[in-house]
Amino acid sequence: MSYLDAGASGVNSTRTPEPQQTQLVDEAVKWLVLMHSGRFNEADAQRCAHWRGQSSEHQRVWESVEKLNRQFESVPGSLAMPVLNRPRVSENRRMMLKTIALAITAPSAMWLGYRAIPWDSLNAQYRTGTGERRDVALADGSQLSLNTSSAVDVVFDARQRLVLQRSGEIHIQTAHGPQAGARPFVVKTQQGSLQALGTRFVVRCTPDRTRLTVLDGAVQVRPLHWSETQIVPAGQELDFSADRLGAKVPALPGVGQWVQGVLYAEQMRLADFVAELARYRPGILRCDSSVADIPVSGAFQLNNTDRILEALAQTLPVQIQFRTRYWVTVAAR
C-alpha cells in the first residue's frame, strides 16, 4: 500500500448533491430540530406542513432526514434550542447549519452520551467545535491544545494546577522550573485523575473511559474508584474507567500529530480511519463493511476533510458516495 498524500487533486466519487438539494436538507434539519425543541406550536406545525407540501422533493427530503434521525438518539430540546439561539451561530448561517446537522445526525464527541457528559462542557472555559483545534498558553507557561469537539476548564491556585477535562481530546506540555514544580499539574476526567511528572501527554475522553498516551516524561494515573495508582512512562498508553485500570501498551504511532493539523495512519483499517476522520466533520461519515479492512497509511492534512476523501478515492479501490453534505459513505468502487 502506497503512502497516501491528502494534497492530491481531483476526485473519483459519485455525484455531489446539487445546491438545491443541499438547501432542502438544511431546511429539513432546522424543522426537525424545532420539532424536538419543546417549543413547536400549532403555527409552526402549519408552516412545517406547508414547507413539506411545496413539492414531492420537499417531502422526499423530509422523510429521508426523519428516517436518519430515528437511527440516532434525538437531541433534547434544551440542547437544540441554545444551538439555534447562540449569537455566534446566528451571525454565520453556514456554521449554524453544520452545527444543527451535527446535533441531529451524528453522535460526535460533543453530543454522544449527552446524559453522561457534564453540562459544563457546553459552557466550558475553553472549547472547540467539530473540526476546530485550539492552542492555549496557560498561566504557568504550560501549553494546552484542544482537539475537535473538546472542552476544558482550568483552575490554578496556590495548591495545584488543575485541568478539568469535560470532553474530547487534549495535548499538554507542562512547564518546567521550580515555581511550576511547587504545585502538582493534574488533569481530571469523569473516570479519574492524571498527574503529570514533568511531561508531554495526550488525554482522550469518551463517556465511559479515558485514554492516556505519554509522549515524554511520565504520568501517574488514579481511577476514580481506586486507591492505587499507575505510573505510565513515555512511549506507553493505557485506557481506564472509573473502576478499572487497563494494561500499559506501546503507544500507537502518530498520536498527538493532530496538534500540527495532521491525521496520521500506519496500516490502519479503513473503517477505523474513517471513524477517526468522522470526528473532524459534521454529519455522518461511514465506511461500508465491504471495504472496512483495506489498510491505509499516510499523513493527512485535517484542514480539508473533503480532500482527504478525494485522496482515498484516488488511491484505494473505493468511491465516495454523497447522499448529502452531511451523509457520506466510503464504499467499494
Rank of each mutant, 00 (worst) to 15 (best):
F185Q: 05
T213D: 10
S142F: 04
L24V: 05
A265E: 10
P17S: 03
L285E: 09
T213G: 10
A137R: 09
A151D: 07
P17I: 02
R307Q: 12
H171S: 09
V214D: 13
H225Y: 10
R134W: 06
T128F: 00
C48Q: 12
A292F: 04
L24Y: 02
V11L: 09
A234Y: 09
A116R: 10
S56G: 15
N85R: 08
S241G: 11
R307A: 13
V328E: 06
F201Y: 15
G53A: 14
G192C: 11
R204H: 14
V29E: 01
N123Q: 15
E73N: 15
R222I: 08
E266G: 02
E228T: 11
F240R: 09
T229V: 14
E42L: 11
S9M: 05
Q267I: 06
T16S: 06
G141D: 07
R211P: 02
W226A: 11
Q143R: 07
M81I: 11
E266C: 05
G256D: 11
K188A: 14
H176I: 01
N123F: 12
S121N: 06
N85L: 15
M1R: 00
Q54V: 11
S2F: 04
R161N: 05
T22V: 11
D288Y: 08
E57Y: 09
L263I: 08
V221A: 10
P82H: 13
A275K: 06
A313D: 00
A6S: 15
V202M: 04
Y326M: 02
V221K: 01
E42N: 12
G181M: 01
A247W: 03
W31V: 12
S37F: 05
R325W: 03
L24M: 15
D216M: 05
S145E: 02
T305Q: 01
V152T: 12
L24F: 07
S74C: 06
A313E: 00
G235P: 13
K188R: 15
M95I: 09
R209S: 14
V186W: 04
R183G: 04
G254Y: 14
V221R: 01
R39F: 05
G77V: 10
V291L: 08
A103P: 06
S167W: 02
L79M: 14
E228P: 04
V262K: 01
Q23G: 01
Q319T: 03
E169V: 03
Q21S: 03
T329C: 07
E132D: 15
S121F: 04
Q230C: 15
W119E: 09
L138I: 06
Q160E: 14
H58D: 13
N69D: 12
T315A: 12
Q160N: 08
L164T: 07
V219P: 01
E169F: 03
V330Y: 00
D140N: 08
R211K: 10
E66P: 03
H171G: 01
Q46Y: 04
T189C: 14
V186C: 10
A49G: 04
